[in-house]
């Protein structure tokens, strides 16, 4: 059974028409750790990827693909890296449903263009950062 309804698919397809280039969703799954959530995450990602030819999916197992997981800094599942022309450092831990789903679509669009929608002040402030900044955003599906 599909996770996305036909109405969802139409809305997502319209959003993904804004993609400015290829997007790769690198999904981390490990059935021994969180089988149901990993399965749901993979299914959701594949349903999204079906809606645009610009979107590709790669599924990795952090227990097997250890070097890749380390390189991406992923040590929990289900997890996903949203990559455009390069890895911009955007990660989703858990199944991005509900409110997070719209953030996933937004992330795909912004990595595809490489052009963040931020004020010039914000952009120039971020360019001047002297150290690394790790932002964690906790949310729930509703």
């Amino acid at each position: 059974m599909s996770i996305l309804t036909e109405r969802d698919r139409q809305a997502v397809r319209a959003e993904l028409a804004k993609l400015g280039g290829p997007v790769k969703l690198v999904v981390f799954s490990q059935s021994l750790v969180a089988a149901d959530l990993c399965r749901e995450n993979e299914q959701l990602v594949r349903e999204v990827a079906e809606l645009s030819e610009q979107v590709s999916v790669e599924v990795l197992n952090p227990a097997i693909d250890r070097d890749r997981a380390d390189a991406y800094g992923v040590d929990q599942v289900p997890a996903m890296v949203v990559e455009g022309a390069r890895d911009y450092g955007i990660r989703f831990l858990g199944v991005p449903s509900g409110y997070e789903f719209s953030n996933l679509i937004d992330a795909m669009i912004v990595v595809s263009t490489g052009e963040p929608e931020l004020s010039d002040t914000t952009k120039s402030s971020l360019t001047g950062l002297a150290g690394d900044v790790d932002i964690k955003v906790f949310s729930t599906p509703t």
Partner: peptide, 24 residues
């Protein structure tokens, strides 16, 4: 998450992680 992920694209220094709280 929206602002965080746009900031991540704006700067190589910034990393943004969305965490589904009930699953973790």
């Amino acid at each position: 998450m929206r602002l965080a992920q746009h900031m991540a694209v704006a700067s190589d220094r910034v990393r943004a992680t969305a965490i589904e709280a009930t699953e973790f």
